[in-house]
């Protein structure tokens, strides 16, 4: 068994060498990420446009969001990116125990992010600022949103839910991928010569992180908090 997984490299029948297979996989994921950039890009375009058109309403609405939770979540996600980067390194250096541990840590941090995000969604329901389903802000929230126009404030929350929701969906997919990766890591499938799946999943995870790096300032910081 030990000699079997010391140098076990799966080469699919269409490839000539493990190098070719590795390069194809990496190029494939980068092209997929370019696709994802354009996928989120449509939403970013719409958001940027409406923010420009209805700036007062968007600034007021963005101040409703909880900046502390946003900042904490950003730190949590960046930490998960850090542990993910270390997982790839652990796979490269064939440290199987560390790989499994780091993957579990990454998944935990991802789950914490989703938990905080879920709590923020819950807050929006409490404040009655969920577009279409429950958009009837009252009291202080209403007083802060009203000057910019409620219709356009609703538009802000549309984008807030679409963009963070799509991002959260990508997180959930990422957690699934990490889980499969963990099972394969526990089965000692990876070694210094074959760790492409860890790398590819890592690239995806970092990309989802980058999306959040932009969502955080665009949604939470935009109007200023002064």
């Amino acid at each position: 068994m030990s000699e079997a997984h010391s140098g076990r490299i799966h080469i699919a029948h269409q490839f000539e060498s493990s190098d070719q297979q590795h390069e194809a996989g990496t190029l494939g994921i980068w092209i997929f990420l370019a696709t994802e950039v354009m996928f989120f890009g449509g939403l970013f375009t719409g958001y940027a446009l409406d923010r420009w058109l209805y700036y007062p309403a968007f600034a007021a609405a963005s101040r409703i969001l909880d900046i502390r939770l946003g900042a904490i979540n950003t730190a949590v996600l960046l930490t998960s990116s850090f542990t993910m980067a270390l997982s790839v390194r652990a796979a490269q250096t064939a440290k199987r125990g560390a790989l499994a541990l780091l993957l579990i840590l990454t998944m935990l941090l991802g789950a914490v992010f989703l938990g905080i995000k879920g709590f923020e969604y819950y807050q929006k329901f409490v404040e009655h600022v969920v577009p279409s389903l429950d958009f009837a802000p009252q009291g202080e929230v209403l007083a802060r949103l009203a000057p910019g126009g409620l219709g356009h404030a609703q538009l802000f929350f549309c984008f807030y839910f679409f963009m963070t929701g799509l991002h959260a969906l990508h997180m959930i997919v990422g957690l699934g991928l990490l889980f499969v990766l963990l099972l394969r890591a526990l089965g000692s499938e990876f070694n210094a010569g074959y760790y492409a799946p860890v790398e590819v999943t890592g690239l995806y995870w970092h990309f989802v992180d980058i999306i959040w790096i932009f969502l955080f300032p665009l949604l939470y910081l935009i109007g200023g908090r002064f």
Partner: peptide, 9 residues
């Protein structure tokens, strides 16, 4: 992260 959050204030 700390910088960008602080700058918002």
């Amino acid at each position: 992260v700390a910088l960008t959050t602080g700058a918002a204030f």
